[in-house]
Design a protein around this nucleic acid. Sequence first.
DNA 1: AGCACTTTCAACCACTGGGTTGACTAGTGG
DNA 2: CCACTAGTCAACCCAGTGGTTGAAAGTGCT
Lengths: 131, 131
Amino acid sequence: MTTDALSRVFAALADPTRRDMVARLADSDATAGQLAEPYQMTLQAVYKHLKVLEEAGLVTRPPGPQPRPVRLEVRALDLMDTWIERYRDRAEQRYRRLDALLAQMNGDEHEQDHRDGHRGRPEAAHHPDDS
Amino acid sequence: MTTDALSRVFAALADPTRRDMVARLADSDATAGQLAEPYQMTLQAVYKHLKVLEEAGLVTRPPGPQPRPVRLEVRALDLMDTWIERYRDRAEQRYRRLDALLAQMNGDEHEQDHRDGHRGRPEAAHHPDDS
DNA sequence: AGCACTTTCAACCACTGGGTTGACTAGTGG
DNA sequence: CCACTAGTCAACCCAGTGGTTGAAAGTGCT
């Protein structure tokens, strides 16, 4: 899998079963067996889900004695959170700027000649921003 | 698709291209064509991505005259954010409780008989919590 | 050693998902 | 009316995924 970390985390959380697992793990650690109980699917399927969560960094399973406990790794959530926050903030700032512009245009009613849908500015080239 | 809203949003953001799109849309609205430019894929593929984002509620495209602009819908991000926040907080509270417990056990060094890996408490039944 | 339980590996199946090609509709502007 | 562009629909390909079954390792306990 060549996909980046962020994609893996989002993809992992895109499954209701997996989301329920992390929800339960937020309250207490559990063994794979304990995790599996509520769901009506094979134990192997649960291990597969575990593996996905693990590869996404959302969960760790310290090696050692047999019933290996599953721990939630909260920092993986931070990764998503900062991403979301970044673009939400950016969008909100844009809205604020747009409101300000509208207010200003309300102030001087003339000069309505180049209101061409305000999608004229080239706004530099596209920079990836995703890393 | 019978999957819930949350799954759709997470799944939508699990793709780097789609993530880049919302990143760019956070800075300014764009038409589908403008959005497509940076990527080396068919226009149809871009429209598919748009559709996914739209069905996830991350984006809206007001009907009307031909070049339909694409707007980012920030509130969809909130949906994810509250989910993440909820379980992160819950996990952090648990860690704090656990630290307190450890500190307390440090206080009275005796009574080390039931230190069975602190995974003993049943902690009620599993309640779905996902909605 | 032997038994039970947990974990993993591997093959398989149905279905979804990102991408393509190709054709088709709908506005816009001569 | 004709041409152009923006957008859409549909079929297809191939890779990935959620789930299954079956078998094989590890590990713990007596």
